[in-house]
Amino acid sequence: MFTRSFLLLPLATLLLATSALAAGPNLGMPLTQADLAAWDIFVFPDGKGLPKGSGTAAEGSAIYAQKCMHCHGEGAKGGISAALVGAPPIKSIDAPKTIANFWPYSTTLFDFIRRAMPWQQPRSLTDNEVYALTAYLLAQNKLIGEKDVMNAQALPKVKMPNRDNFSPRFPELMPRSGEKDL
């Protein structure tokens, strides 16, 4: 009897697994990469997800004046919305967190501008315009040169000054691999 039970166990497990799948609603529709293209916009710190295209600070300056200055102020020094240029030293726990003094990854700049800005018309910018605005803000913050071209290869290589000053609150909750740069 024991032998028989042991022999049956793997088969029973297999049947359970199969019937569980069959018994599930299975109401999802298969999704192709082409179907997803308009939504597939996450950009990762290693550059994964960055699109083709490029832009420079000079191009970005003109776009900024037209589409961003209304909220973020002249020279990106702040208006009704946050200052995007400037790196006041972090001297207290309530210090302003700016791109240059706090943001750990340059890729976040591209990702956030592309997904959420301008506030009134998100997703109205082309990828080239997003690269240009990213270049403009990085150059204004003196994190890249005025002439540097930002694209999928160059942007992830821009090392942000504060990158290595972060740690998780509960290290045991962090996934054990895939945490490069954390």
Partner: peptide
């Protein structure tokens, strides 16, 4: 994904 996105809200 293998890595976090380091989105605006989590990294800033």
């Amino acid at each position: 994904a293998e890595q976090p996105a380091m989105s605006y809200y989590e990294s800033r």
